[in-house]
């Protein structure tokens, strides 16, 4: 099975007044067709930037991106325009990602118009209605405006818009973070159904670990622009190796009073991503840091088949 998306040594730096901000630093992964890669990390770890660079919404600083075997790194705007039919995005905030002056029907139909699909008005309206049915939006909302709808329905509009061009690959940037839990579950189920029916491939960006476990085949954990661990969802929760992953998982409050597990409390907070010093970015907060961690960048290595980790002291951390 070929990979739909392959990313090699991808880098994205931003120039700021105080230096180079390393938002994404040497990230390598691939997503097989029809699968979901979850990308987790805390705010500022570069996960949203990664999603945008993959979609060509931001130019990369280094590295390569392959989509369906083709190198699409920094290709021209026209070429990317064509690619957008296959690659779409669902945004985090269903409040700011919809144009408040467009009706629901216009928002969902706009991509069709841009690509000249369904040129006739009637055909387009038919397609819009079909999309609304697919995402579970009542057709009476076709002439409503976003402000008249609640968050869950708005997010369904965002999903319908992303689906309108029948894409193969969708970057989901925190699609459920702004929603209440009972609505969140509805949207997650919808996304799973759509994946099965349309054979979609997702890159699912979130900070919510229980959501990512639920929806992903593979999970990548990021810390300050670098990937620290990549493996299957099951493996990540049963046999995680990186000290940061361990701390992150232990920090989730469990909705149960029986199994409050031992929490690994991290000292301090994220260090600055601007002109980072060489060495492991997590070293200052790590309980297992050795002098080597402050000098050399840890390389990503395959610790066991399919399980990648970037840490100098994996063995010490897992005793």
């Amino acid at each position: 099975m070929g990979s739909l998306l392959e990313v090699k040594h991808l880098k994205k730096y931003f120039k700021t007044a105080s230096g180079m901000l390393h938002a994404v630093d040497d990230v390598t992964f691939s997503i097989p067709e029809g699968e979901t890669l979850g990308v987790v990390g805390e705010s500022g770890c570069g996960k949203s930037t990664l999603g945008r660079v993959v979609l060509g919404l931001l130019d990369s600083t280094g590295g390569e991106i392959f989509f369906e075997g083709e190198n699409i790194t920094n290709v021209s705007q026209e070429q990317f325009h064509a690619l957008r039919r296959k690659m779409q995005i669902i945004f985090q905030d269903p409040y700011s990602s919809l144009n408040p002056r467009m009706s629901v029907g216009d928002i969902i139909g706009e991509p069709l118009q841009i690509f000249g699909l369904c040129p006739e008005k009637e055909a387009r309206e038919e397609r819009v209605k079909e999309l609304m049915r697919v995402v579970g939006l009542d057709q009476r909302f076709i002439n409503s405006y976003p402000h008249e709808l609640d968050g869950g329905r708005r997010q369904r509009i965002g999903i319908a818009r992303a689906l309108s061009l029948d894409p193969k690959f969708i970057v989901c940037d925190e699609p459920v973070s702004a929603l209440d839990v009972s609505i969140q579950a509805q949207i997650l189920n919808l996304m799973q159904d759509l994946q099965e029916e349309h054979g979609l491939t997702y890159m699912f960006i979130t900070h919510n670990l229980s959501v990512v476990k639920h929806i992903s085949d593979n999970i990548m954990v990021m810390y300050l622009g670098q990937m620290v661990e990549l493996c299957s969802a099951k493996e990540l929760f049963s046999n995680n190796l990186h000290p940061y992953t361990k701390a992150l998982l232990s920090a989730i409050p469990r909705p149960s009073i029986r199994q409050q597990q031992q929490r690994i409390l991290l000292k301090g907070e994220l260090s600055s991503p601007i002109d980072p010093k060489p060495g492991c970015r997590f070293a200052v907060r790590c309980n297992y840091a050795t002098p080597a961690c402050f000098e050399q960048d840890p390389q990503l290595r395959e610790y066991c088949p399919g399980h990648f980790v970037a840490c100098h002291n994996v063995e010490a951390a897992n005793q």
Partner: peptide
């Protein structure tokens, strides 16, 4: 964030 949340809760 969760790791910071853990610190504040503690």
């Amino acid at each position: 964030d969760v790791t910071i949340q853990a610190q504040v809760i503690e």
